[in-house]
């Protein structure tokens, strides 16, 4: 079922870079820098508004990929890579979607492990890509069997 998902994309979802959510997120990663949370400092900055920390897209909804139903437990996050063309600005709307880039299996200590490569995209009001976020998810045998049997 993972192999069949390669190349599939989710339906794009609109996400707001909400000021309060940015502040809560910055505080949760122990980074209450004024550029993220102080409205006045944001206005005076070169961005003219607050920006969001680089890992903020974690809060976005990237939509579901049809036929790919991942459990919320038991997955291992192996790698994560963000690429930005510019920082995210508080108050802007970002259209997000995700794509299955690859799936492969490798024999490891705990049996046959699955490796799922996903790529998330965020585009702005002009249709320009603001960021991409690639992640490698490792799926162990137990979870694999669980998902397959559904």
């Amino acid at each position: 079922m993972f192999n069949e998902s390669i190349g599939k994309q989710s339906k794009p979802v609109k996400n707001l870079v909400e000021r309060g959510a940015v502040k809560k997120f910055a505080l949760a990663i122990g980074d209450p820098h004024p550029i993220f949370i102080d409205e006045e400092k944001g206005r005076q900055s070169r961005y003219g508004t607050n920006i969001a920390p680089p890992t903020f897209p974690r809060v976005f909804d990237f939509g579901a990929i049809e036929g790919l139903d991942l459990p919320n437990k038991g997955l291992i996050h192996g790698e994560q890579k963000y690429h930005y063309n510019r920082p995210l600005r508080a108050g802007e709307e970002i259209t997000c979607y995700t794509e299955v880039r690859d799936y492969y299996e490798k024999k490891g200590k705990q049996g046959e492990m699955g490796f799922l490569a996903l790529k998330n995209y965020g585009t702005d009001a002009n249709g320009e890509i603001v960021f991409t976020a690639e992640q490698l998810v490792i799926i162990n045998e137990t979870i694999k069997r669980m998902v397959m049997s559904k």
Binding site: I29, H33, S45, T55, R58, H77, E79, Y82, H83
Partner: peptide, 23 residues
Amino acid sequence: GNLAKIFSNLYEIGYIEEYKIRF
């Protein structure tokens, strides 16, 4: 998320273009 804060003082002169991590 925490690790990126080393760069938070620098946003007036640039930004994080790429941030790649292995867990």
